[in-house]
Design a protein around this nucleic acid. Sequence first.
DNA 1: AGCCGATCTGAGCGGAACTTGAGGATCACG
DNA 2: CGTGATCCTCAAGTTCCGCTCAGATCGGCT
Lengths: 252, 252
Amino acid sequence: MRLLLVEDDERVAAALVAVLGRHGFQVRHARSGHEALDALVPDGNDPYRVVLLDLGLPDRDGFEVCSRIRAGSGVPVIMVTARADIRSRIHGLNLGADDYVTKPYDMGELLARIHAVARRGAQPSSVAVPAPDAVPQQRGPLESRGIRIDRERRRVSVDGRDVPLTRKEFDLLALLAQSPGVVYRREQIFSEVWRSGWEGNGRTLEVHIGSLRNKLALPGLVEAVRGVGYRLIPDSPASPATDRTPASPAEH
Amino acid sequence: MRLLLVEDDERVAAALVAVLGRHGFQVRHARSGHEALDALVPDGNDPYRVVLLDLGLPDRDGFEVCSRIRAGSGVPVIMVTARADIRSRIHGLNLGADDYVTKPYDMGELLARIHAVARRGAQPSSVAVPAPDAVPQQRGPLESRGIRIDRERRRVSVDGRDVPLTRKEFDLLALLAQSPGVVYRREQIFSEVWRSGWEGNGRTLEVHIGSLRNKLALPGLVEAVRGVGYRLIPDSPASPATDRTPASPAEH
DNA sequence: AGCCGATCTGAGCGGAACTTGAGGATCACG
DNA sequence: CGTGATCCTCAAGTTCCGCTCAGATCGGCT
């Protein structure tokens, strides 16, 4: 899970990077608002799932950055700042921030809040946002084609029968089921299901896909897209033009 | 914009209804968790855009309600409570709340936060929402599988026999028993049972789980979920909501 | 201080989960 | 129809993770 940290104090940043890393985040550190905005330009990598924006920078600047971010992207933003006054809080939230945390904060609570906004996921709000890779992270149990995926219980059932899955199998299915029909590229799958940048050398992904198919016993559900990745076939094939991939076809 | 207010204090509720009304919200007031869950059953009206959940009710009860809501629906939930301690905050957020506001709060900030979560909104989702009556509302001391957990007295009994537990063991059990069936991740357990941000370096968690299992002497109760964490196995309601399949008696 | 239970740490074990490799099947494309 | 690339399956390794035990440390109480 990628996270963008905007923080000018190196010591604070280093500490946060360490802790967040230990909790499974792949952190990119931006030292300034400018750098942050650059980092948010879609580049084919996975999009950031959340932005941690410190307002410790040259006073008002942070608000400016938040509003710029919000103008161009739907990525969730958490403001972190020493400014505890009500006016700033309200102002920050109204600029489009998803949460506003004041220092000193408890690390556990910050983590919980990060998870809260991350699971809410990026949804291109009203604005027409150039965020093609934005994954509509859906909450509550997923259900489609008789498969019920209960994320918090890590349980999967097909037509009422419980299907025990291993960790990788479950994560894989949960990822693909987020957007049935959409093709997930191999690198994308690896970075979501396998932590840290790890390129699957061997046949790892195929094997897990294989055992997932076996256990679900729903032929045709998990489809391989040659040279790209995998996807789930949705039940109501509302003209899935098959080109409905998040990847721009231009890139090879 | 419809909003569901869960609050048992009539005076507080009346004030909130007035203010929220003035700000363009159509407020439905539920006096109890049960009423709230009823109100959330899809009925053809517009779905609620946000739930304001007061935890002032009988102690721990509010957390239950939040977890029940989240089990069946993706509607954004803001917890409003006087409980300011870190444990409660983290727990509330981990249960799926989108925000956690402590009293006394500033009305302007609350409004800003309501707008923040409503902005993200949960898509009404084509997903079937399981009927909440499938989930029995559980009050007072937790009880399941013959285990009785009295949170106030910190007493646990199995089939009537008192089982003395240490602090950590009790906290651990109480946490897991909050929502039998759901998987609690290691980090989550650490941040709620231990002081926040604590990294379990050694085999601490396993040891405590071990002694808890020994003392309860109920094999299969506490289940390890490899690579993720632990959960309690509920006695019967494994997946009751999936019975909604009228025709599929192929075999069994 | 001294005791005693509670908590934490480290090593070893066993088994589940994951990875890898090779061979066969299938597909896209000329 | 041939060919190379890609995907699937099977059957080994190999790693990882949770369990247990035993000893060390912590902390409250008399």
